Computed example of a mutant assay.
Amino acid sequence: MLEHLNLRQKLTILLSIMVVVGLSLGGLGLSAVLKHNARQEITATALLIMETMTSVRDYTNQQVNLELADKFAVDFIPQSVPAYSAREVFEVLRRKTEYQDFFYKEATLNPTNLRDKADSFETQIVERFRKNKNLKELDGFRKIPGGDIFYIARPLAVTESKCLECHSTFNVAPKTMIDRYGTVNGFGWKLHEIVGVQMISVPARKVIQKSQQSSVWILGIVSTMFIGIIILVNIFLNHQILRPLKRITRIAEEVSTGHMDVNFQEISNDEIGKLAKAFNRMKLSLEMAMKKLKQFYNSTQ
C-alpha cells in the first residue's frame, strides 16, 4: 500500500504512528505518575487535617479542661472530651467544598461514645500499631460497599493521666458521664496504651479523578504539540524537499524530450542542491555527447 503513496503521505503516516505509540506508552507512565502525585497531594491535605485535629485535642486537654475543671467535677461536659471536640471541629471544616469528601474518625477499641467504635478493619489497624510501636503511620485503599476509599491512620495513645479520670474504672468516673454512657464502655484504659487510631479517609474516586483530570489536560497539550509538529514538518517537507524535487523532475522530463535550453536551479547547498548540480552536469555531458554524435554523423555523410 505504501508503494502507491507519495513521500509526504508516507512521512505523515510514520509521524502519526510515532505519535500514537508515544502517547500510548507515555500515557501509561504519565497516568501512574499523576496518580502518585494526586495521592501525595491528598495525603498532604489529609495529614494537615489530622495535625489540626491533634491541635484541637491538645487545646481541649490543656486549656478547656483546665478552665472547666471545677464544673467538670460536678457535671460531665462532652465538649471537654478531646475526641468530641476534634470530631465537632472537623464537621465544621467539612462544610467547606474542598473538604466535604474527607471523613475523620477516632476509631477506638473500647470507646465511651459508641460513635467512635472501631469496626473490624479499623481494629486490625489498631492492632498493627500495638504490635509495632515504631510504626507511626499507615495508608492505603479499603474496599467498602459504597466504593473504595483511601485512608491515612495514626496511632492514638493515652498520653495524659487525666484521661484515666474518666477511663480507668467507672467507680471514679463522673456520675453524669455514667448516666449518659453507662458503665460498660470506655473503661480499663492504661497510660501510654494505644487505644485507637486517628483516621482520615476520602473516596478513592477522588484520587482517580484528580489524576485523570491532570492526564486529560497534559495529554491534550502534548497531542496538540505533536499535531503542530506534524503540520510544521509537512510544511517544511513541501517547501524544502517536495517542491524542489517536483521542479527537478519536470525539468528532467523536458530534457528527456530534447529541450536543452532549460537548466536545473541550484537554489541550495543541501542534498537537493547537489542533486540539481549533478543533473546540470549530466545535462552538460548529454549536450556534449549529442554534439559529438551530430559531428560524427555529419562527417560520415
Results as ranks from 00 to 15, higher is better:
159 T>W: 04
159 T>M: 10
164 L>Y: 06
164 L>V: 08
166 C>V: 06
166 C>Y: 09
167 H>V: 03
168 S>E: 15
169 T>L: 06
170 F>Y: 15
171 N>A: 12
173 A>Q: 03
173 A>I: 05
176 T>N: 02
181 Y>K: 10
188 G>D: 08
190 K>R: 14
191 L>H: 12
192 H>W: 09
194 I>D: 09
194 I>Y: 08
196 G>N: 02
198 Q>T: 15
201 S>I: 05
201 S>N: 08
202 V>S: 04
202 V>P: 02
203 P>M: 08
204 A>N: 04
206 K>G: 01
208 I>N: 10
212 Q>R: 11
217 W>Q: 07
218 I>S: 05
218 I>R: 07
221 I>K: 00
221 I>L: 14
223 S>W: 09
224 T>G: 15
224 T>L: 12
225 M>Y: 13
226 F>R: 01
227 I>H: 03
228 G>H: 01
229 I>Q: 02
230 I>L: 12
231 I>A: 13
232 L>A: 14
233 V>K: 02
233 V>L: 07
234 N>G: 07
239 H>E: 08
244 P>D: 06
245 L>F: 07
250 R>Y: 11
250 R>C: 00
251 I>D: 00
252 A>M: 08
254 E>A: 10
255 V>Q: 05
256 S>F: 07
257 T>W: 03
257 T>F: 03
257 T>H: 12
260 M>R: 11
262 V>S: 07
264 F>Q: 05
265 Q>G: 04
267 I>C: 01
268 S>F: 10
271 E>V: 02
275 L>F: 05
275 L>G: 00
276 A>C: 04
281 R>A: 01
283 K>S: 13
284 L>A: 15
284 L>M: 11
287 E>N: 15
289 A>Q: 13
290 M>T: 10
290 M>L: 12
292 K>E: 14
296 F>N: 15
298 N>I: 09
299 S>N: 12
300 T>G: 00
